[in-house]
Design a binder for these strands. Structure first.
Length: 409
RNA sequence: GGCCCCGUCGUCUAGCGGUUAGGAUCCAUGGUUUUCAUCCAUGUUACAGGAGUUCAAUUCUCCUCGGGGUCACCA
């Protein structure tokens, strides 16, 4: 069983989606189940409804999961396991106050040492515990092996489980075999392992770390990218490509499942590049058939799809394509400086015969109008596309020639 | 500060003991296009530094330097 764990405290980020994709891909490759776990223990910063939004997004990206677990539903198990550890004297009550702990931490910092809990409450005599009316947390006794792990808190003073305890337990309960996670969780892994060791869980969970994506603080969220007109397929393609060896430039999630090799995942931190993503998106759009492409710009017409394809030379997203195509079918806003020539050309075109080829159309217009150079080209662009610059006018004419009567009125 | 990850053209990267160190992008030049753009051709530019292992090091080891992460009763 593999899992994707996510905190519903913010919109889905690109690196988080990347983690989800990798876990899903490997689950598919191994023929194991894949579940989503919503880590909703922290009540203050939870955002209402964002968990459903994340699940919808995963579905949109083709990530299928067999089950959704909300971590808060497991709290009774967390409590039971903590109790068991206390019984076995592998965990203990801690009455240390925040102030006292903060001072200790400050002292360690001043001395330039790593702060570790000093186990002050570890061996309190029973009568001291019984007589103590102060609130207390539950700490797990530190392991012998990695000395960097101290007796950390597993139940807060309000007896809700802490993150590392809950995750350690949940991964055990879900029978997780491999966890692909972000590099920043390396240290946490040790704590979660220690929890399972204390609970005498025999199975060794495998871990694989993905290098961080740099520059992500300024990068758009997944939702924003979709709104900007990036295709889910392209985003998947991009995320798998960065920092990874891929046999081909363009591929689908299905294909990634077929070729991805876990051992080859690069450990070099990668940078998010909107330009690279645009390039992938452009190519995915290019690969669509004309009618399908036209739907992304609000039509259902192969000819408009072909026209959009021409515009893919200059733009990379469906939103930008729309911004190019839509004005063609709206009223013209002619700049003063081209007004005269545009009016002249317009009259000629209205009375012109139909031309199959742009070359002949051009020849006719130049002859009839006497215009040349930019004073011909820009007014023509304005009439055809409602813009003063753009892609190859000959190509544009090819796809617009049947709409001339509609466009130029 | 301790621990962990990482260090190849300006940028993103390929490379996994022997390569003219490859690609993409940017930039420059030329060409195509009555075109800002597109497209084509050509060109400049990199193994962070230092020791070691080896016949041979960008590749393996160590040190230095640099970047990032992490050290909570937050998840």
């Amino acid at each position: 069983m593999l899992r994707f764990a996510v905190t519903p405290t913010s919109d889905l980020k690109l690196d988080t989606l990347r983690i989800a994709l990798y876990n899903f891909i490997v689950a598919k490759q191994r023929g194991e189940d894949f579940i989503v776990r919503i880590e909703d223990l922290e009540k203050e910063s939870l955002i209402e409804g964002i968990d459903d939004e994340i699940l919808d997004l995963l579905a949109l990206f083709g990530v299928e999961f067999s089950q959704v677990i909300h971590q808060s539903q497991n709290i009774r198990f967390h409590s039971a396991m903590a109790l068991q550890l206390v019984h076995e004297r592998k965990a203990f009550s801690c009455f240390c106050s925040d102030n006292w702990l903060a001072n200790k931490r400050e002292e360690a910092k001043q001395a330039g040492e790593k702060y570790l809990y000093d186990d002050a409450c570890r061996n309190l005599p029973a009568e001291l515990i019984i007589d103590n009316t102060n609130p207390f947390s539950i700490r797990i006794a530190r392991p012998d092996k990695p000395e960097s792990i101290d007796s950390f808190v597993i139940l807060n003073r309000d007896k809700t489980p802490t993150y590392n305890f809950a995750v350690g337990v949940d991964d055990m309960l879900s029978d997780i075999s491999l966890i692909i996670r972000s590099e920043e969780f390396r240290e946490e892994t040790l704590k979660q392992k220690h929890v399972r060791d204390a609970l005498k869980y025999e199975k060794q969970v495998e871990y694989l770390y993905l290098p961080t994506i740099k520059n992500l603080d300024t990068a758009p969220t997944v939702k924003e990218l979709l709104r900007e007109g990036f295709l889910p397929e392209a985003i998947v393609n991009y995320l798998v490509t960065i920092g990874d060896e891929v046999p081909q430039e363009l591929f689908t999630l299905e294909e990634a499942i077929a070729f991805l090799e876990l051992e080859k995942i690069s450990q070099t931190p990668v940078s998010f590049s909107i330009e690279a993503l645009q390039e992938v998106n452009r190519k995915h759009l290019q690969a669509l058939d004309a009618k399908e492409l036209s739907r992304y710009v609000g039509f259902a017409d192969a000819e408009i799809g072909e026209l959009a394809r021409v515009y893919l030379d200059e733009v990379a997203t469906t939103k930008e394509l729309k911004a190019k195509i839509a004005p063609i079918f709206t009223e013209r806003n002619i700049p003063e400086e081209f007004a005269k020539e545009t009016t002249l050309l317009k009259e000629i075109i209205k009375n012109a015969p139909y031309f199959e080829e742009y070359a002949l159309f051009k020849e006719y217009l130049i002859k009839e109008s006497g215009l040349e150079g930019d004073s011909y080209l820009i007014p023509l662009r304005l009439l055809l596309t409602n813009a003063t610059e753009g892609s190859d006018i000959a190509e544009i004419y090819q796809h617009l020639k049947n709409y001339i009567g509609e466009i130029i009125k």
